[in-house]
């Protein structure tokens, strides 16, 4: 095997280059195997037929083309439906506004660098933001509808909680990235927490916060279109009614309305955010 060369030395062993050395490469391999095993186990456990996945899209297309096709536009132009669209917009505005207003102090608490106290306020803020983020907005809607009854109030509160989680996380991330120089300067001259926030933190994050607030409204509007599906008021209620009565052409018209409105909201928020970013 190891032939000794003419001058009596062992030849250098053949080395093959690899990016990861022994323990890390084995760990990576094991993790990969575990993920693949979990995936195949899930396919077996959930009884997924790959042919059905491939067949789902032609079938969806066929259903859309035959049952949904001529969308019942007159239904969408009806007065009561247009009123529900207006209410959807109202809910998203209110939810977005109060969500953002509540998210600012929570984000202040949950930002590690400028929080009031790391022992109490920090975990509290983190937990509040994470908790409202973890639970999906439809579940919040159902819970609020159960307690407060059907209508826009429940939907608005659900959207508020959703926006607290959504905006709070982005705000906290933004706050943790600020320049600490002004904060320390103000602290060293004895400013209170509120003064530090007002004069050192707020000027740095004003533009970014405005952008995030507008984006939050955009996302809240998307959520508001289906909040009514579970009794929260707005156009989702019409979606539920027409779906359950199998009036598919009307469902198609409502879906088209939702897509168009969401596109418009996205364009508007993109335009506004662009203008605000230019003011930076």
């Amino acid at each position: 095997m190891t032939a000794i060369s003419a001058d009596g030395h062992m030849p250098a062993p053949v080395r093959r280059w690899s990016r990861y050395k022994h323990p890390r490469s084995t760990i990576r391999f094991a993790v990969l195997i575990a993920v693949l095993a979990f995936l195949s186990w899930s396919i077996a456990f959930l009884n997924i037929d790959l042919y059905r996945i491939i067949g789902a899209f032609p079938r969806l297309w066929e259903i859309l083309a035959t049952r949904y096709f001529p969308p019942d536009i007159d239904y969408v132009l009806d007065d009561s439906f247009l009123h529900s669209v207006l209410r959807t917009i109202e809910m998203s505005l209110l939810g977005g506004f109060f969500g953002v207003v509540l998210a600012i102090p929570l984000a202040w608490m949950a930002a590690r660098n400028i929080t009031i106290s790391r022992r109490i306020a920090y975990p509290l803020g983190r937990f509040a933001i994470m908790g409202s983020r973890s639970i999906h907005e439809t579940i919040w809607t159902i819970l609020f509808v159960t307690v407060l009854g059907f209508g826009m109030l429940a939907g608005t509160l659900a959207l508020t909680v959703f926006c607290v989680g959504f905006a709070g996380k982005l705000f906290a991330d933004e706050l943790e990235a600020i320049d600490m120089g002004p904060v320390e300067a103000l602290r060293s001259v004895g400013a209170s927490n509120l003064q530090v926030f007002q004069y050192a933190v707020l000027p740095q994050i004003r533009v970014a916060f405005t952008g995030i607030a507008i984006y939050t409204w955009d996302v809240a509007f998307r959520a508001a279109t289906v909040v009514g599906f579970f009794g929260g008021g707005g156009m989702g209620w019409y979606l539920k009614r027409t779906t359950q009565q199998l009036e598919n052409t009307r469902v198609a018209a409502i879906l088209l309305t939702i897509i168009v409105l969401v596109l418009l909201a996205e364009l508007a928020s993109g335009w506004l955010r662009h203008r605000i970013a230019k003011m930076r």
């Binding site: 209410r87 809910m91 505005l93 009854g149 209508g151 109030l153």
Partner: peptide, 12 residues
């Protein structure tokens, strides 16, 4: 106006 519509008009 949104608050009025939500809290006064639509809530029972």
């Amino acid at each position: 106006w949104c608050i009025w519509d939500t809290v006064m008009v639509d809530t029972d």
